[in-house]
Design a protein around this nucleic acid. Structure first.
Ligand SMILES: [Zn+2]
Ligand SMILES: [Zn+2]
Ligand SMILES: [Zn+2]
Ligand SMILES: [Zn+2]
Lengths: 159, 159
DNA sequence: ACAGGGATGTTATAACATATCAATCCCGAA
DNA sequence: TTCGGGATTGATATGTTATAACATCCCTGT
């Protein structure tokens, strides 16, 4: 399981690889991976952290790529629908996906200190909850699994 | 597992019982279960549905119990901290707890049709995710597990 | 009476998100 | 070429959710 975001890694390569995957994915799906959308994904990828829509917007604005909220929300909407990013409901914030467009139902470990986000998969978790849902006749379409706490880096310094 | 909220039940008794439990719980814990807080819980209990803070506020206002946002948020804050209600992060809304103050980590089944909410327990789910967290050195403090979909009642009528 | 704490009243504002319409661009059909 | 439709972006305004800050009230112990 990937604890990317908490582990040190060659992040420049990490970003480049993710961007390449994203580009390929969009090409394959016939999606229009425009400059604003590319930049938005780059910004999210740059940090393995949850970014608010307005944080993203501020960074886009620095590049002259829009300054009104809809710009950010439209880009995020595209990325989320394309499976290139996820919304962290508990923070009303967004994070780049580390599984490059593959179909999956993510689970997150979210640090309340630095907002770093690690993405795992919920197959089993969702199966568990799935039993309960089936018993109730409930049809699950989407699951949100978010664990909040402290990452290794934030456990030492700040008590 | 309780699929209360999706099953028919004697709801008047259900509310009365929950209110009694809440009162007892607050008394035992030395918590100040004031009229506004009682009314807020009653309003949440009346429906086994997620209510927005401003929906709650509107209903409180009808009873002359406050008309500014902080009134609702303070009541909700109290109820959540006391374990008498939960926040549904995926909806930015709130629901009464059906486990009357007992220590627990809830998981929810949320209908996108009628916003009905069923509350289950997540012990195993959390254990699963717990392994991943442990492997990453992540310390979990709180988990959000929310499955969205359609409840039995909303599956028939609306295709 | 007085101080301190908890609860509430009130005003203002921050933070997150969407509706709506105009302008632009691209591409294929006529 | 010219036209029209679809997708994207620009811009304005507004809606929704949440909190900061400070005043007031009430109770309680000294
Ligand atoms: Zn990286
Ligand atoms: Zn951290
Ligand atoms: Zn009931
Ligand atoms: Zn329903």
């Amino acid at each position: 399981m990937a604890a990317i975001g908490f582990c040190a890694h060659d992040h420049t390569a990490c970003v480049a690889e993710m961007m390449a995957h994203a580009e390929a994915h969009c090409a394959a799906e016939g999606l229009n991976f425009t400059p604003v959308r590319q930049r938005a994904l780059e910004i999210l990828l740059r940090e393995h952290r949850a970014l608010g829509a307005y944080d993203l917007l501020a960074q886009l604005a620095e590049d002259g790529l829009g300054s009104q909220p809809p710009v950010a929300y439209r880009a995020l909407d595209f990325l989320v629908k394309a499976g290139l990013a996820h919304k962290i409901e508990a923070l009303n914030a967004y994070v780049a996906c580390v599984h490059s467009g593959a179909e999956h139902t993510p689970a997150f470990l979210i640090c309340r200190g630095c907002r770093a986000v690690a993405e795992a998969d919920t197959a089993l978790t969702s199966g568990r909850l799935g039993e309960a849902a089936a018993a109730a006749g409930f049809h699950i379409e989407r699951t949100v699994v978010e664990a909040q706490g402290l990452c290794p880096a934030c456990q030492g310094p700040a008590p």
